[in-house]
Amino acid sequence: MTLFSPRLAARLDALVEKYPLRRSALVPMLLYAQDEIGYISDAVVAEVAQRIGITELDVRNVATYYSMLRFKPAGKYNVQVCTNISCMLRGGYEIYERFKEELGIGHKGVTPDGLFSLEEVECIGVCCWAPAIQVNYDFHDELKPDLVPGIIDGYRGKAVAEAPHA
């Protein structure tokens, strides 16, 4: 029994054998699991612990250290707004404020329809095009506050398009 898709399960099987110490696979396993399940649930903790052969406490000790691992479901589109130095100097906070306003949620909030969540994050590595945000694995850079509603609408449309037809 596994929580994961056959593909991911196979990938995790390979991962634990890859390092001299099985527990070295812990962080990548958690990241992949989060990508598929959406967050690190109790069940994820249990399965990862069991796959590596360490205690659940060990998994939690490591997982809670990393701010990019979440323990509650995020929105379908997780909006991460950088407010670190380059982005801050080029208006990152204005972007962040505009997202808060448009989505009606704050840091780590999720919209009631579950579509969006918002996070204020540290440098995401695109300082040269600051201010930048990351939505799931997509980047949007050189932003102005007025571009925010368009970005949101884009994802709304995407969600509708992807929704299974009734």
């Binding site: 109790d42 659940e56 406490l57 939690r60 250290y65 323990f71």
Partner: peptide, 26 residues
């Protein structure tokens, strides 16, 4: 091995091994 350290920096806590939910210390 019933005690662990969770979170980071000033938010670090010593956490026991049972009960509680993920992300919250046990």
């Amino acid at each position: 091995w019933a005690l662990g350290v969770q979170n980071r920096g000033v938010r670090s806590v010593i956490a026991p091994n049972g009960g509680g939910q993920a992300g919250q210390s046990n």
